[in-house]
Design a protein around this nucleic acid. Structure first.
Length: 625
RNA sequence: GCGCUUGUAGCUCAGUGGAUAGAGCAUCUGGUUGCGGUCCAGAGGGUCGCAGGUUCGAUUCCUGCCAAGCGCACCA
């Protein structure tokens, strides 16, 4: 079918708007590359210790560079004395020596070293080396580092000057956004934050599902049952009703699907009337989505969407045909990509000539590479699409749209299920995001106004909003991505144990302590002691500081493995350690001035890290609750 | 039928080629006249789905099987 390139003025105007946004994002990224002040990895005690220990170990076994920069700082099990542990099995294999020989060599090397910054001494236990740190140095430099960096503690330059495009949320415009798209939105935003904090310049792209056969369906429904008045009043609700009505009737009238496809093909050929309608649907939806994004604290650089790429998608098909990696099917006339790399064959263009998801995605990929030159592209999309992404990446590599230098990752995640079944618009089991947020916020209002009746004032609504929204975000992020989440109102709104609320509460409690301190010892809550004066007394205090020290490393690992839930696990452990410390000693009653102020610094550092950690997950902390 | 993912404590989930597999909830015991108990400490509870294999060592890697979920061209 011959393409009609005469788009309506509306479409042209829309394309120009998109390009304006794209170039402003590009400017921002270029600027960032030149001017961003990165926090050097080298200033963090955790990385300095790692480097020091690695150096000594390599020296003591006379094998410089053997770790190849992959030396991991591990902690020994709880029942073993020692701050760090090294196991020599791996080395033994590489060097063809016995683990025991190596561990005693390493221990000798460590104990022989005189001018160390953090490392004190070591003992060998069979194949293990248990290392003791200079505890006071580790403790003081960690607290001092946090006090200096504040909100920036944890950021690093590990991935400085690299660009990542994160493609996430990507709701379909013809449908209301439900809890399924929430996962992509939340995970994508957390990953974008993680990448940014390790040095990446991040481009956040909401690749709207604003094209495709579902628009044919919506146009069909609108033409048959659409009521202007109702739509004006409540556009999103009415569009949803139309969509559901279509599906209900199409079950018994399969020809409706064909008619919808015809309408979509007309739209793709630039039918002016349909284009105007399409643009209206799109605008309404975007406005509606924006409200939700704002509430969840999600921010995108652009909402380009698939519709932008339809012309280029056709060129992609032509290009692939000329490169001989796909063919026109003799019988149907559709464009087919044959079985390759053990992947089943699939279509690149429909029989009626209109584009498909994968051809538009190919064009999108080409565009992103040409304009932004990214090091990595993340596609945050549910795992039910994993076959599609394998086909897409395989085709893109063969077509030369995805050079080996560019990493493309499908960040997959499990579904949100209800009673073991996927929730969907069609089944009517979809829970809408608005309802979810409302209910969560209401629940937090209910619980906290009862628990803490003294909580009054104008900021109350904001506090409940922070708690309610935090509970939703955390519920989604605290378990590993890949697993299905079974949807359960009670669990989602459970504010106990391993929840955002527990972490927020710990933060608030620290703020309260600091306030109390200022009443008794005015001005002490924000004193920063000189490193040489910072001290501690109990084991709990040290364990807490050691945990605080690990934070930058945890961020690096969470980014590297695309696992926001590592941050959750870490924060829960941290909060537990703080609560132990809190239970153990009274800061207010600490008589010794430097010890008391050190403890205040420790508490403030903990609050700081909880805040920074939750911020990575897009969760805010209230000042009271 | 083929492919992908998952299977760890009663429940929800972490974790790992190596030292005695961990949290939260639930159950039981103890602490607290507090810096906000939405806390802390402790106990019980596990053949890490089953069976083989690789390895000095496997819950982790490989193979087979069982169970659940998802996917397998004109949807996205």
């Amino acid at each position: 079918m011959k393409k009609n390139d005469q788009k309506t003025p509306i479409f042209d105007q829309y394309q120009q708007e998109v390009m304006t946004t794209v170039y402003s994002v590009l400017d921002r990224v270029k600027c960032e590359m030149m001017e961003r002040k990165y926090i050097s990895k080298e200033i963090y005690p955790v990385f300095r210790i790692q480097k020091e220990l690695c150096g000594i170990v390599e020296k003591s076994i006379e094998s410089p560079g053997i770790f190849n920069e992959e030396f991991d700082l591990q902690s020994p099990p709880a029942y073993v004395t020692g701050d760090f542990a090294i196991e020599t099995f791996g080395l033994a294999k590489k060097l063809k020596e016995s683990p025991q020989t190596l561990s005693s060599k390493v221990v000798d090397g460590i104990n022989r070293e005189e001018h160390t910054e953090f490392i004190d001494k070591a003992v060998a236990v069979g194949p293990f080396v248990n290392v003791e740190a200079k505890k006071n140095i580790l403790y003081a430099s960690t607290l001092s580092c946090i006090a200096t960096l504040g909100d920036k503690y944890g950021e690093s330059d590990i991935n400085a000057k690299k660009v990542v495009v994160v493609d996430y949320s990507s709701p379909n415009i013809a449908k209301p956004m439900g809890i399924g798209h929430l996962r992509s939105t939340i995970i994508g935003q957390a990953l974008a934050n993680l990448y940014e904090k390790t040095g990446y310049s991040v481009i956040r792209d909401n690749h709207l599902g604003d094209w495709g056969t579902q628009f044919g369906k919506l146009l069909f429904a609108y033409k048959h049952w659409g009521n202007e008045e109702d739509i004006e009043k409540n556009p999103i609700e009415e569009l949803k009703n139309l969509y559901v009505k279509f599906h209900n009737l199409a079950k018994d009238n399969p020809q409706m699907e064909d008619e919808a496809r015809v309408l979509f093909a007309k739209l793709e050929n630039g039918d002016p009337e349909l284009t105007i309608l399409w643009k209206r649907f799109r605008d309404w939806s975007v406005i509606d989505f924006e409200k939700m994004y704002e509430r969840l604290g999600i921010n995108f650089d652009m909402h380009i969407g698939e519709s932008f790429f339809i012309k280029e998608a056709e060129k992609v098909v032509q290009d692939c045909l000329s490169k001989g990696i796909c063919r026109i099917d003799d019988e149907t006339g559709a464009v087919v990509v044959d079985q390759q790399d053990n992947l089943p064959s699939f279509l690149l263009r429909k029989q009626d000539g209109s584009t498909l998801y994968i051809s538009r995605d190919m064009a999108t990929l080409k565009f992103r590479n040409e304009i932004f030159n990214p090091e990595t592209i993340l596609y945050v999309v549910g795992s039910e699409q994993s076959l599609n992404f394998k086909q897409f990446f395989s085709l893109a590599r063969r077509a030369g749209y995805l050079p080996d230098s560019v990493k493309a990752k499908h960040i997959d995640f499990g579904m949100v299920t209800k009673e073991g079944k996927k929730m969907s618009t069609r089944r009517g089991t979809l829970i809408e995001l608005n309802d979810l947020i409302e209910q969560s916020v209401e629940k937090s209002r209910e619980i906290f106004s009862k628990k803490n009746p003294s909580l009054i004032g104008e900021k109350l609504d904001e506090i409940f909003e922070i708690i309610g929204v935090g509970a939703i975000l955390y519920n989604d992020l605290h378990q590993s991505r890949i697993k299905n989440i079974s949807f359960d109102w009670d669990k989602m709104l459970d504010f106990e144990g391993g929840s955002a609320t527990y972490l927020q509460y710990t933060y608030v409690r620290i703020q309260s302590i600091l306030k109390k301190i200022d009443e008794t010892f005015p001005g002490e809550s924000d004193i920063v002691l000189d490193e040489s004066n910072i001290c501690f007394e109990t084991k709990n205090e040290f364990s807490l500081a050691k945990k605080l020290m690990e934070f930058p490393q945890i961020i690096a690992k969470a980014q590297k493995t695309d696992s926001p839930h590592d941050i959750c696990t870490y924060l829960e452990e941290l909060a537990l350690l703080f609560n132990s410390f809190y239970n153990d000693v009274s800061i207010l009653k600490t008589g010794d001035d430097t010890l008391r102020i050190s403890r205040i610094m420790l508490s403030r550092s903990t609050a700081n890290v909880i805040k920074n950690g939750l911020a990575l997950l897009n969760i805010r902390v209230p000042e009271k609750m």
